[in-house]
């Protein structure tokens, strides 16, 4: 097989992945912080105030990228879960299960920043707007996967069961979104639609994209870090982990 598939195949073995993740992680984090700094500078300083919302709209630069990340990470989790279920690759299981807390964190951020943004715009901390409600259900889906993963003792079986739940969840995501939209139009009139800027000025758009890039880079860094630790915890019996633990133990 050519070099790429060989490299990808070798990446499947825990010690190789452990070293690779350790090497790449700081670079990903640095790139994320750089992209984030540029994005926030563009969003908070350069971008003009919105004619309707004044400066309150600047929350968009973390609210919308986080919402995108909530869905993006769920898709990654379901994909890794599918690979784990079909080919029974231990690393895919670990990657899928370590995606869940990061996705839950981004979804939680989306809900809190959405609520903080809603207060000046709609006058209340929480409204049953279709998107906020779907986001809340997405958070419950994440918590269901995390809960199931920690409810089963055997790590491998827990990962496979939680991956299966993630697949059921990904099938249900569009259905939930559609039904919440339908439900929202049924009880319409609760919100004025100014949260989602349909036509966004370019000076506001590029910081948004920069932040989207920054959150994806951050996701990579955080996921690799979590996967390394999960590997350490699970592969305790293997000698490459013992060798790793030994020298650190000898230091005073």
């Amino acid at each position: 097989m050519n070099t790429l598939t060989l490299w990808l195949h070798k990446l499947g073995s825990p010690p190789t992945f452990y070293r690779f993740a350790g090497a790449v992680r700081p670079w990903l984090l640095a790139a994320a912080l750089l992209a984030g700094a540029i994005g926030l500078y563009g969003g908070l300083v350069l971008a003009p105030a919105d004619y309707q919302q004044g400066d309150a709209y600047r929350i968009i630069f973390i609210h919308v990228p986080s919402a995108w990340m909530g869905l993006f990470i769920y898709a990654c989790m379901a994909a890794a879960g599918f690979v784990a279920l079909v080919w029974r690759i231990k690393l895919a299981e670990i990657v899928a299960m370590e995606c869940a807390p990061i996705g839950a964190a981004f979804t939680f951020i989306t809900l809190v920043t959405g609520s903080l943004w809603g207060k000046p715009m709609w006058g209340t901390w929480w409204t049953w707007d279709a998107r906020l409600t779907s986001e809340l259900v997405l958070l419950f889906l994440y918590l269901g996967v995390i809960g199931l993963y920690y409810a089963i003792e055997d790590r491998r079986k827990a990962a496979r069961a939680a991956a299966f739940l993630a697949l059921i969840g990904i099938i249900n995501l569009p259905i939930v979104h559609f039904s919440v939209q339908w439900w929202n139009t049924l009880h319409q009139g609760s919100t004025v639609r100014i949260l989602g800027p349909s036509h966004i000025a370019p000076s506001m758009l590029w910081p948004l994209l920069a932040m989207a890039l920054a959150t994806k880079l951050y996701f990579g860094a955080s996921l690799l870090g979590r996967a390394r630790v999960a590997l350490l915890a699970q592969e305790g019996g293997k000698d490459w982990v013992r060798a790793l633990a030994q020298p650190e133990g000898s230091r005073p």
Partner: peptide, 24 residues
């Protein structure tokens, strides 16, 4: 002052960085 909305914009950013720092 964030155009008078400082009480909403900065807590939102604080939550963003706090949750991600804890996640990291």
């Amino acid at each position: 002052a964030m155009g008078g909305y400082a009480a909403y914009v900065w807590p939102a950013y604080a939550v963003f960085f706090a949750v991600l720092a804890w996640d990291y």
